[in-house]
Design a protein around this nucleic acid. Structure first.
Lengths: 177, 177
DNA sequence: ACGAATTATTTTAAGCTTAAAATATCTCGC
DNA sequence: GCGAGATATTTTAAGCTTAAAATAATTCGT
């Protein structure tokens, strides 16, 4: 690195630190890689679920939530846990009931709600799919050793915390301040 | 930990190493965190693009591709680069043309294709959005230092390679073998 | 130059997704 | 017990997404 390059680097760095808005090139590259990596895996899971079990990922996710709730769950609870809109859940549940994988029951105490649970067929179907799904994920991360996996967990945790902080700050701007 | 538990742990571990299919618990937790982290960021970007610029993420992504191609691009090229179906691109382009952000031109040499490019309005609109977008991403990763970012890049690279390898292996199973 | 195979794009049908409006029910203070 | 506001769900309208079928044009071997 030449003297001039060093000087330039220092100048740019000073500018960035001072004014706090560089070009965010590294961050953009990192975000792109994170997105590509996730999309690659998700697309493969979708594809395999469709080809081998004729099921969509949202339906699989919904069944996974119900598997953990033997006594059933309300649509609102499903909506919150899956982090999707209530209207979305209504449609998914309708189609799964149509397929005989779910049952709707009137909620005992609240006539606005209904409880949803897996049918026997639903349980059986999910168990098979979850087995395969677990194996796929295992294969996808097969080349990472324990150290890599732990480090990746840690860094993603830091990232999530950083994003949440940025979201809170952004929210304050959106309000009064 | 009792003697029995230790023995059991060793037995399970031996079984896992021997047959290569444990419960994949760590991998599933890692995948879940990766997915959550990406979805968190993506949802926030979608939300901000919609609120502040009244634009969807797919439209923003399409415009970003065209920004890098001053002479325009065919729909097929857009489809490949965005990694979405051709039919999807047709619809997106139609709506963006409707909004006056894109122009379609007959391709000079191939009457099957059309070239798409940003209009002046499209360029201007994208420049504003890209600036804000870059700042958002910068903020999201603000709490990560250079070492963390480099390490995350490296680990995501390893992950992508691992997934691609698993996909190739899975493909072989799907064919003749 | 003919025709088969390939390539580029569009259309179609189905499902996912959301925000916003509409319904229905519940809760709580009075 | 009444009524206002909160809560649970459904409906609606619009857009995104895909796979598969349909069109249209090109390429290439002969």
């Amino acid at each position: 690195m030449s003297e001039r390059d060093v000087a330039e680097a220092i100048a740019i760095d000073a500018e960035t630190r001072t004014h706090g808005h560089g070009d965010h090139k590294d961050e953009l590259r990192l975000w792109l890689r994170l997105l590509t990596c996730t999309n690659l895996i998700e697309a493969e899971i979708r594809s395999r679920l469709r080809e081998r079990f004729n099921v969509t990922l949202p339906r699989f996710d919904l069944m996974a939530q119900l598997e953990k709730a033997p006594d059933g769950m309300t649509l609102g609870e499903l909506s919150r846990r899956m982090m999707v809109s209530a209207g979305n859940v209504t449609g998914l549940v309708d189609r799964l009931v149509q397929d005989g994988l779910l049952e709707r029951h009137a909620a005992p105490a609240d006539r606005r709600s209904s409880l949803v649970k897996l049918t026997a067929k639903g349980h059986e179907s999910f168990a098979t799919m979850a087995d395969a799904h677990g194996d796929w994920i295992g294969d996808f991360f097969d080349q990472l050793n324990d150290g890599d996996m732990g480090e990746l967990m840690r860094l993603l945790g830091r990232t999530k915390a950083s994003v949440r902080r940025a979201m809170e700050q952004g929210e304050e701007q959106g309000n009064k301040e």
